[in-house]
Computed example of a mutant assay.
Amino acid sequence: MGDLFTIPQGEKKIAVELTIKEAMALMGQQFPYGSEVKAAAQQKVRQAVERQYEIVSN
């Protein structure tokens, strides 16, 4: 299965600082009373990508 599209500079690295819980949430770990953990981690990753590509979020 090939790539459906190309991402310019797709191999370039970015740094995102996550807590252990946030990293685990992105890996699929479920936390009782902590549904906001995964959302916070996803937001950090999204913001890092937006900064890299200077994307304006809606």
Rank of each mutant, 00 (worst) to 15 (best):
P8W: 06
A15Y: 12
V16P: 07
Q47R: 14
Q43M: 11
Q29V: 15
I55G: 01
M24I: 00
Y53P: 00
V37S: 00
A23M: 09
F5H: 09
I7C: 08
S35H: 13
S57M: 06
S57F: 05
S57W: 07
Q47V: 05
V56K: 14
G28P: 06
E54Q: 14
P32C: 06
S35R: 12
G34Q: 05
A39H: 02
Q43Y: 07
I14G: 00
S35V: 11
Q47E: 15
E22P: 00
K12H: 12
P32D: 15
S57T: 08
V49C: 04
Y33R: 14
E50S: 12
E11Y: 08
E11V: 06
Q42I: 14
V37E: 03
V49P: 01
P8L: 05
K44L: 06
L4D: 13
T19R: 01
S35W: 12
V56P: 11
A23Y: 09
I7K: 06
Q52P: 00
A48L: 07
E22K: 01
Q42P: 00
R46P: 01
E22D: 02
L18C: 00
G10W: 09
E54Y: 10
I55W: 15
Y53K: 00
G2Q: 07
K38L: 14
N58L: 09
E50N: 13
G34L: 07
Q30N: 10
A25V: 02
P32Y: 15
R46N: 13
K13I: 14
E17F: 13
K44Q: 02
A39L: 12
Q9E: 15
T19H: 05
G2M: 07
E17S: 09
T6W: 11
K12C: 08
Y33T: 09
Q30I: 09
A15S: 14
E17M: 04
Y53H: 01
Q9M: 15
M1D: 06
R46V: 10
K44C: 04
N58R: 13
